[in-house]
């Protein structure tokens, strides 16, 4: 279970998050929607531990662990996975090597045995097949020369291999690419279980046609101003955020 309590964060002197409260129980998928500049991406980066964001107040717990005290790699080991909106390219780093290094780093921290190259390839090939990816994915450099859709698939492949308990999907403004949305949705839906939760961050309602959330939260001006069922997303799509901001 993820619990965010009165979270305040800023970049430099600019306060972006102004008291976010949010609880995502295991087994549920929550969506965060909001207008540009509401703090959606900031929230995802603060949760995953990126440098440059200063938390000035509040707490975040995941399965009773103090998330904000953990280094990014330890958050990953604790089961938190951030799917990047724009994954970086890593020239010179082979995808297979990268994936195995990541999986083994996480396994080591979780007290599990590391996988040798043969065992890993078996697991990776099975995951690749599930995601309808080509096998040469493993031989290419991480994200180098990948199309937008391929990059998303690679994110979902990493997610499948790292088996997180909580996925944070930053899809802030990728609402226009239907294929990419479907890839992300398939990746999340494949992991749905009583022990998996997801926080889907998006600007457009369209993604939520493919990942049906249990709860929708509306983030405006650094605060969650409304929460509701999936129907709330449709209402936002029809009427926009303007009415809510005034409220």
């Amino acid at each position: 279970m993820l619990e965010i309590k009165n979270l305040h964060a800023r970049i430099g002197d600019k306060e972006i998050l102004k008291g976010v409260n949010l609880t995502v129980p295991d087994g549920e998928i929550h969506a965060i929607m909001g207008p540009n500049g509401a703090g959606k991406s900031t929230l995802s980066y603060v949760l995953s531990g990126r440098d440059g964001y200063e938390v000035t107040q509040g707490e975040v717990f995941y399965n009773s662990q103090d998330v904000l005290a953990l280094a990014p790699e330890d958050r990953a080991a604790a089961g938190i996975f951030l799917a990047f909106q724009y994954p970086v390219e890593l020239p010179g780093v082979g995808n297979a090597n990268f994936l195995r290094t990541a999986v083994n780093a996480v396994r080591r921290k979780r007290g599990e045995a590391e996988m040798d190259a043969v065992a890993f390839l078996k697991v990776a090939r099975a995951a690749i097949k599930n995601l309808s990816m080509k096998e040469d994915f493993l031989k290419r450099n991480v994200n180098v020369g990948f199309s937008g859709g391929e990059k998303k698939r690679n994110e979902m492949l990493q997610m499948a291999l790292l088996q997180p308990g909580l996925a944070i999907l930053d899809e802030t403004d990728s609402g226009l690419d239907i294929d990419a949305l479907k890839i992300v949705a398939d990746g999340v839906n494949a992991l749905r279980s009583a022990r998996f939760a997801a926080l889907v961050i998006t600007h457009y309602q369209r993604l939520l046609d493919y990942i049906v959330p249990d709860v929708v939260h509306v983030l405006v001006g650094g605060r969650i101003i409304r929460s509701g069922s999936a129907a709330l997303a449709l209402e936002l799509e029809a009427h926009g955020y303007t009415g809510l901001e005034a409220a």
Binding site: E73, G92, A105, K109
Partner: peptide, 24 residues
């Protein structure tokens, strides 16, 4: 950050990127 967010410790992440830089 990308590598660390995937569970790879910082020192190992930097070593991996330096090795990648030398690859050509």
């Amino acid at each position: 950050f990308y590598l660390r967010s995937r569970g790879i410790p910082e020192a190992q992440a930097r070593a991996l990127l330096i090795r990648a830089f030398l690859d050509d």
